[in-house]
């Protein structure tokens, strides 16, 4: 049995004028670390709110641990943990008070489920008597995660836990998620950072309410249908403009210190043609190489294809 099932879920706002989630179906397996990857407006939060029984879908069905999100909402609420994107703890309660409050709501105590939160709680315990509102961003995030875990949930929903968080804290947070996964908790997490996709077991790439692709990150990368090239030169800004003028180039966009390019015809000699073209346009320090695509390359490709299909 799958932990989470969505079947043709559709959600609109504003009397049907805004399409937030467009006929989405997906399954999350028990114990899986599943990622919803997409920018703001992709529909990630609406999906979380439907699954956590806080929002009713217009169409479709959804279940968590085999329970229907509409009929069995009370049961679901007892077996899931939810960390919303916006910090939602009591700012004027202390760390300890917040944790005790959430434990009590679920009819348990901090002591009873201590082993679930121990690794995370140890990091904020020195601030037990500090008010939540006075904590730093990274510590607030850890406290929120403890509160979402204190009743030992079977499924954990984390809505953009790393948004606006620096690289160091983001890495720490993903280490924590892997520890939780090792305890057998099913985790559904969303992020706008494409580089975090690779840290999930399976991901759904989402854009404007629909799913563009669902698979393991490795398989998504393997399914990239054409060769991808990286290029750079001393004047990278001019290099973008020159390559975009070349008719054989299908796409050309900046990616860190390099440009990434795909070709319309996609044939073995392309790399030499790109080099020659760069040299003939007077570029110094030119480098062109074939590279393995990343999740973000796939995302861009799928987005462009979708834009073309929509006319």
């Amino acid at each position: 049995m799958n932990s989470v099932i969505l079947e043709g879920i559709t959600k609109t706002y504003d009397d049907g004028n805004v399409m937030a989630v467009d006929n989405v179906s997906l399954q999350v397996k028990p114990g899986e670390l599943f990622g919803l990857i997409g920018p703001d407006g992709a529909g990630k939060t609406s999906i979380f709110r439907i699954l956590t029984t806080l929002l009713l879908a217009d169409k479709g069905t959804a279940s968590v641990q085999g329970l229907d999100v509409v009929k069995d909402y009370r049961k679901i609420r007892n077996m899931i943990g939810y960390m919303p994107g916006k910090f939602s703890l009591y700012q004027d309660l202390t760390v300890k008070e917040n944790l005790t409050f959430f434990a009590t709501l679920f009819g348990t105590t901090i002591a009873e489920n201590y082993e679930v939160i121990k690794d995370i709680y140890d990091q904020i315990k020195p601030f037990n008597d500090r008010r939540a509102g006075k904590l730093s961003g990274g510590m607030k995030q850890k406290l929120a995660l403890c509160c979402a875990l204190i009743h030992k949930p079977e499924v954990l929903f984390l809505d953009e836990p790393t948004t606006g968080v620096d690289v160091v804290s983001r890495r720490e947070f993903w280490d924590i998620l892997n520890q939780l996964k090792a305890q057998g908790i099913t985790i559904m997490v969303s992020t706008p950072y494409m580089d975090e996709a690779i840290l999930c077991e399976r991901i759904a790439l989402m854009q404007e309410g629909s799913i563009m692709q669902v698979d393991t990150p490795q398989q998504i990368i393997r399914s990239y249908p054409v060769r991808l090239y990286a290029a750079k030169a001393d004047n990278i800004y001019k290099l973008v403009q020159d390559f975009r003028m070349l008719d054989a180039v299908s796409s050309c966009y900046a990616f860190g210190e390099y440009l990434h390019l795909t070709m319309k015809a996609d044939k073995p000699g392309d790399i030499d043609a790109l080099r020659e073209y760069g040299i003939s346009h007077g570029h110094q320090g030119l480098e062109v190489k074939e590279i393995e695509p990343g999740i973000e390359d796939t995302f861009i490709r799928l987005m462009n294809r979708k834009a073309q299909t929509n006319g």
């Binding site: 920018p39 703001d40 948004t163 706008p192 494409m194 854009q207 966009y253 861009i300 987005m303």
Partner: peptide, 8 residues
């Protein structure tokens, strides 16, 4: 560019 899609 926080939260903005990769193309935009």
């Amino acid at each position: 560019t926080g939260g903005v899609d990769p193309v935009t």
